[in-house]
Amino acid sequence: MSLNSLESFNSYWNYYIELENELLDISKYIPIDKLNKNTFSFKYMKLIFSICSELDTVFKEFMEFKGIYKNQPNMNDYKIFMRDNFQNFSSEIILCNRLNELKPFENWDLNDSSSLWWKDYNDIKHYRTKKENGIENFKKSTQLNTLYALSALYQLETYLYRELVDKYEKNSSLKIPLPQSKIFRIKDWPNNRSLIDDKYLFEFDQIEKSLVFYAPDNLND
Score class of each variant (00 low, 15 high):
residue 2 S to W: 01
residue 2 S to T: 11
residue 3 L to V: 13
residue 4 N to D: 12
residue 6 L to W: 03
residue 8 S to F: 03
residue 10 N to A: 14
residue 13 W to F: 06
residue 14 N to K: 13
residue 16 Y to S: 08
residue 17 I to T: 09
residue 19 L to Q: 02
residue 20 E to R: 06
residue 21 N to I: 00
residue 21 N to F: 04
residue 24 L to Y: 03
residue 25 D to V: 08
residue 26 I to C: 04
residue 27 S to D: 00
residue 29 Y to W: 00
residue 30 I to N: 02
residue 31 P to H: 00
residue 31 P to K: 01
residue 34 K to M: 08
residue 34 K to A: 12
residue 37 K to E: 15
residue 39 T to F: 15
residue 41 S to F: 10
residue 45 M to F: 05
residue 46 K to G: 15
residue 47 L to Q: 08
residue 50 S to F: 08
residue 51 I to E: 01
residue 53 S to M: 06
residue 55 L to N: 12
residue 58 V to R: 05
residue 58 V to H: 01
residue 60 K to L: 13
residue 61 E to S: 15
residue 67 G to K: 00
residue 70 K to W: 02
residue 70 K to R: 07
residue 77 D to M: 03
residue 77 D to C: 05
residue 78 Y to I: 01
residue 80 I to K: 13
residue 82 M to D: 01
residue 82 M to S: 08
residue 84 D to R: 06
residue 85 N to E: 00
residue 86 F to K: 08
residue 87 Q to M: 06
residue 87 Q to H: 13
residue 87 Q to S: 14
residue 88 N to R: 06
residue 90 S to M: 10
residue 90 S to N: 13
residue 91 S to D: 15
residue 91 S to T: 15
residue 93 I to K: 15
residue 94 I to Y: 04
residue 95 L to Q: 11
residue 96 C to K: 01
residue 97 N to C: 02
residue 98 R to H: 14
residue 99 L to Q: 10
residue 103 K to E: 14
residue 109 D to L: 11
residue 110 L to P: 04
residue 114 S to E: 10
residue 116 L to T: 14
residue 118 W to Q: 09
residue 120 D to I: 02
residue 121 Y to T: 09
residue 123 D to L: 13
residue 126 H to A: 01
residue 126 H to V: 07
residue 127 Y to Q: 08
residue 128 R to M: 14
residue 129 T to K: 07
residue 136 E to W: 00
residue 136 E to Q: 10
residue 136 E to N: 09
residue 140 K to Y: 04
residue 143 Q to C: 05
residue 144 L to Q: 11
residue 146 T to F: 11
residue 146 T to A: 07
residue 147 L to M: 13
residue 149 A to W: 03
residue 152 A to C: 05
residue 154 Y to M: 04
residue 160 L to P: 06
residue 160 L to G: 10
residue 163 E to Q: 15
residue 165 V to I: 15
residue 165 V to K: 12
residue 167 K to V: 08
residue 170 K to H: 06
residue 172 S to T: 06
residue 176 I to P: 00
residue 179 P to S: 02
residue 181 S to M: 04
residue 182 K to T: 03
residue 186 I to Q: 03
residue 187 K to Q: 07
residue 190 P to E: 01
residue 192 N to P: 05
residue 193 R to F: 05
residue 195 L to Y: 10
residue 197 D to I: 04
residue 198 D to N: 15
residue 198 D to S: 15
residue 200 Y to M: 05
residue 201 L to N: 12
residue 201 L to H: 10
residue 201 L to V: 10
residue 205 D to K: 06
residue 205 D to I: 02
residue 206 Q to V: 10
residue 206 Q to T: 11
residue 208 E to G: 15
residue 212 V to N: 12
residue 214 Y to G: 05
residue 217 D to G: 01
residue 219 L to K: 11
residue 220 N to D: 10
